[in-house]
């Protein structure tokens, strides 16, 4: 059977890269003694698929992964056992038994972020947020395998609001994520910097949740339609 779970990655783990997170789960599975299915071959690895890699520095409340178990058990028991085997900085928040073979990687179309930055003097975050949505093109330079490439991220920005707390400003953004249309928080901030002609310095990036898109609606990957 397959289980999909949602997990959070807190402050303690934000500097742990994706491959290290993968190994962390492999070891947590071993500690939990859960009947996790393994790949064949010289070096058997547990069968786990993450919806999206996590960049260094990101905290998140809404990551997803699928895991295959060799015995059936309730999602609640699975969660309890896993959480007892994970370090405090990373915990499961929800889990459901899957009934379709959907791949979580293919489901991700967007993500909600809360992106923190140092607020410059006389910076009106609401005006800037408005400007972003009013733009027709937002050009940024994206690092690709073949070097720097100019791309337009405007079509992938779906919602933007902003708020300020002390010296920190935050953009709450819904934008493209996943295999094809991914916008990283730094790229968003670099695009905004271009719009307001002021270099905004990234201070924190938090993913609120990864989302799938179905029938005109943004949905959690644990929504029944995706399971």
């Amino acid at each position: 059977m397959q289980i999909r779970f949602q997990f959070r990655k807190g402050e303690d783990l934000k500097f742990i890269g994706h491959l290290d997170i993968l190994r962390l789960f492999e070891r947590a599975f071993k500690r939990s003694a859960l009947p996790v299915a393994h790949s064949q071959g010289f070096n058997p690895r547990p069968r786990i698929v993450f919806a999206q890699p996590m960049p260094l520095g990101l905290t998140s409340d809404g990551e997803f992964a699928d895991v295959e178990l060799l015995a059936s058990m309730s999602a609640v028991d699975f969660m309890t056992l896993m959480n007892a085997s994970l370090p405090p900085g990373i915990q499961l928040v929800d889990a459901k038994v899957k009934s379709s073979p959907s791949n979580p990687m293919g489901l991700v179309s967007g993500a909600r972020y809360r992106i923190g930055f140092d607020v410059p003097v006389s910076f009106d975050i609401h005006t800037v947020a408005r400007k972003v949505l009013d733009s027709t093109i937002i050009h940024v330079m994206k690092k690709t395998k073949s070097g720097l490439k100019q791309i337009d991220i405007r079509p992938l920005i779906y919602e933007v609001t902003g708020d300020v707390s002390g010296t920190m400003g935050y953009f709450n953004v819904l934008m493209g994520a996943g295999q094809n249309d991914n916008v990283r928080p730094e790229l968003f901030l670099s695009g905004v910097s271009g719009i307001c002609c002021e270099e905004l310095e990234l201070r924190s990036m938090h993913r609120i949740i990864l989302l799938g898109y179905n029938n005109g609606r943004w949905l959690s990957l644990l929504d029944e339609q995706f399971l």
């Binding site: 303690d12 783990l13 742990i16 962390l24 070891r27 500690r31 370090p87 405090p88």
Partner: peptide, 16 residues
């Protein structure tokens, strides 16, 4: 600070 140093997890602890 941590985003600008090599392997920031050297300095953050919190391991199992």
């Amino acid at each position: 600070i941590l985003l600008n140093v090599e392997k920031p997890a050297r300095y953050t602890g919190g391991e199992w």
